[in-house]
Design a protein around this nucleic acid. Structure first.
Length: 706
RNA sequence: GCGCGAUUAGCUCAGUUGGUAGAGCAACUCAUUUACACUGAGAAGGUCGGGGGUUCAAGUCCCUCAUCGCGCACCA
């Protein structure tokens, strides 16, 4: 052991200094890029990194997924796979726009008062700045991803490819323009897909309103101006004779003429068994209007205010209008009764504003044929889920597909390359911006101002990042080996990637799907800014080192279930790093100038210890092959500390023979290899001091041979 | 309402195909300068949510109940 190394080992392990130096060493080696790996690395192993949103700091959840994927990548690289872990950054359309809008709000500005071009430019600069920050933080976690292949979801060729897919889907009849009910957020002024809304329990009132000869129950009396019918169950004897008739119902603005229709959807037991039909402002009513060919009357505008069709109520916001309408109904004596009513209403998943169902022309993806492809792939086990119960969730979802609204009324995203006819309202793709008249009616066609739902582009991410369809990377690395993501994306992202993969490339985008749970606070409570229990990973790494944080996130954290991030746990693994450091110092000092080479004849006790270690290494390798990182990490931790350090090293103290020197060096060096995927920094640093001939960087060393 | 998951030591959680209950932290006793106090040795702590069943054997498989969490769908 040379003097200089000896000196370094005599000091305590310093993560701060070591980590940046080691990461630089790795990056400069070029081995993050599979093309630069030695010849033994032939068979590809690929992970596409779920691109973090470039709109803020990395949180504990990011730390977990980077650690998990880095463990997979480092393990497979050592096993001799041509390993590609491809990083990216997501412009995260709606999400980023919201973050930016909050910033504008603080500055007393509003996006609705800005020129769209200026707004786009500002968000672009903001995102690029955040992207650089994000990349720095991913590096700090030790991620061994190939930065030379990094992609951004707004790269020009990404945009081009996404738009081409839109055209292809339109040609194949999988994308259509439809005037349908959409989830409208009146605050954000955009429609949202079904997975972008959440249901929230709300206490409302149920109002019983006399409509001529019958009474209807509703929670939204402010929509009566848009009522066109009353629906009853055809088997309801109370109302059977009224079906087909038209009733007259006086309301504050005049007299409504309402058709009475019979529809099996109506529940006889609820309310009065008679349901008012407002086709423009309720999804069920919209569907019923389609079935019964009823007119649509829009009475609420996109800002959530009543429009000119409501007479004196025009301009009022929904809740204020409700109050006034109720007062007026009462005065007219047609408000029969009210009762408290608890129900769940869909809200915007970002601002919790109640979603206003609105009828709007938008682009939709026809999901059924695509979902069928995904369902088939899952049933044929071309996709393997970890944990496996997620297969059920996935197949349930794919069995009940809802057409997907991909139009967003926000500026921050990939433009939908389409024209809309000002005369007939029809739309058609126009990638080259060449067509200005409607092919159907000859009317003037103008550019669609909308952008794509983020998931429309990120759903194609595995394809696009690998250069589908012609790039060599695509041929080499697709389908990818594993997709690791948070379990919440089982609906939002995973199915879309599967669908686009199967539709465009005729193959699944990944073979394995590993889903991790949420990272909660020490008491298992969800982290949130308002609760003030958010743990910033930077604080933990600067206190205890990145390796310690990585171990703390992995040990005992089973796939698919949430974990509690406890600072004491991280501290414990900081202690483990110290243990590794000092055990190494002891072994290196004891072995003196001995170089680890061919195995000499060992004493029986040493031979036994080697066997125990090799059995464990085999066991851990098996765990790693099956995504049991929580077990693998715990096993090597316990072995190293409580067997190697506490027993083998302790018992070695009186000995100086070659057998013990070899044994100690062997177990130490092989342990460093096994610990490396979990704690890459300290192991790489110690590996550089190991007295071994013909060493490489630990990150490309041969995994323990089984 | 339907579906999924959880319930194991004081706390946070492991326990892969059924085979003598585990870890970290906390708490207890002892050791006191050692490769490491970011330490070591030792002891303590659990009828594995309740009940029933299958089995030579159940924390693990089946049924049922309870509580908590999550997701989906909603009847206005």
């Amino acid at each position: 052991m040379n003097e200089k190394i000896n000196e370094k080992l005599l000091k305590p392990y310093d993560p701060q200094e070591t980590e940046s130096r080691i990461y630089k060493l790795w990056e400069e080696s070029g081995f993050f890029n599979p093309d630069n790996l030695p010849a033994r690395h032939k068979e590809p192993f690929t992970i596409i990194m779920p691109p973090p949103n470039a709109n803020g700091d990395l949180h504990a959840g990011h730390s977990l997924f980077i650690t998990l994927e880095d463990i997979m990548a480092r393990y497979k690289r050592m096993r001799g796979f041509k390993t590609l872990w491809l990083p990216g950054a997501d412009h995260a359309g709606f999400e980023t726009q919201i973050v930016y809008e909050k910033k504008l709000e603080k500055e007393g500005r509003s996006r609705f008062k800005m020129d769209p071009q200026d707004l786009y430019k500002e968000i672009y600069d903001f995102t690029i700045l955040n992207k650089q920050n994000m990349e720095k933080q991913v590096r700090a976690m030790g991620a061994s991803c190939d930065w030379s292949r990094e992609r951004f979801t707004l790269d020009p060729d990404v945009i081009k490819e996404v738009q081409k897919t839109f055209q292809k889907m339109y040609n194949d009849g999988l994308v259509y323009r439809g005037n349908r009910m959409v989830n409208w957020c009146t605050k954000h002024q955009t429609s949202l897909s079904d997975v972008e809304t959440e249901n929230k329990e709300k206490d409302d009132m149920l109002y019983y309103i006399k409509y001529g000869p019958l009474t209807v129950a509703t929670v939204r009396p402010e929509t009566i101006f848009g009522d066109v019918a009353v629906a009853v169950n055809p088997e309801d004897s109370r109302y059977a004779s009224l079906i087909g008739t038209t009733i007259k119902a006086p309301i504050p603005t005049g007299i409504l003429e309402l058709k009475v229709i019979g529809d099996a959807v109506v529940d006889k037991e609820f309310g009065t068994g008679a349901l008012k039909i407002t086709p423009s402002h309720d999804k069920n009513d919209f569907d019923m209007a389609t079935r019964h060919d009823l007119p649509h009357i829009e009475v609420i505008d996109k800002h959530g205010r009543l429009n000119e069709k409501t007479g004196k109520y025009a301009g009022l916001k929904i809740l204020e209008a409700r109050r006034q309408v109720v007062t007026d109904l009462e005065a007219m004596g047609i408000l029969e009764k009210t009762e408290p009513y608890k129900h769940a209403v869909p809200v915007c998943y970002k601002c919790e504003t109640t979603i206003e169902p609105r009828e709007m022309p938008q682009w939709f993806v026809r999901m059924q044929p695509l979902a069928d492809l995904a369902l088939k792939a899952a049933e044929e086990n071309r996709l393997t889920f970890y944990p496996e119960n997620y297969k059920k969730i996935f197949t349930y979802w794919m069995s009940n597909p809802i057409d997907w609204n991909i139009s967003r009324q926000i500026i921050w995203g990939i433009p939908i390359p389409a024209k809309i006819c000002t005369k007939c309202g029809d739309g058609f793709p126009d990638l080259d911006n060449k067509h200005f008249t409607c092919p159907k009616c000859g009317g003037e066609a103008v550019t669609d101002p909308d952008t794509f739902d983020t998931w429309f582009s990120s759903g194609q991410w595995p394809l696009i990042t690998l250069g589908f369809p012609d790039d060599q990377d695509f041929k080499t690395f697709y389908p990818t080996s594993v997709m690791q993501s948070g379990s919440d994306l089982i609906f939002k992202w995973i199915p879309r990637m599967v669908i686009f993969g199967l539709y465009l490339a005729k193959d699944v985008p990944f073979k394995d799907i590993y889903l991790s749970g949420l990272v909660n606070d020490a008491n298992g409570k969800k982290m949130s800014k308002s609760k003030g229990n958010v743990i910033n990973p930077n604080t933990l790494t600067s206190k205890y080192g990145t390796d310690a944080l990585r171990m703390g996130l992995i040990v005992g954290n089973t796939p698919g279930s949430d974990m509690a991030l406890n600072e004491n746990k991280i501290k414990g693994y900081r202690n483990f790093a110290n243990k590794i450091w000092n055990a190494s110092r002891f072994v290196l000092t004891k072995s003196d100038s001995y170089i680890l080479g061919e195995k000499p004849t060992l004493e029986t006790k040493d031979e036994e210890n080697i066997k125990i270690f090799n059995d464990l290494a085999k066991d851990i390798t098996d765990d790693l092959d099956n995504y049991r990182f929580h077990l693998a990490s715990e096993k090597i931790y316990h072995y190293f500390w409580h067997t190697f350090a506490d027993i083998i090293i302790e018992e070695s103290k009186p000995r100086t023979d070659e057998s013990i020197k070899w044994t100690l060096l062997y177990i130490l060096s092989e342990s460093l290899k096994i610990i490396h995927p979990f704690m890459p920094f300290i192991t790489e640093e110690l590996w550089s001091m190991m007295p071994i001939k013909e060493k490489n960087l630990l990150m490309i060393e041969y995994w323990h041979s089984i």
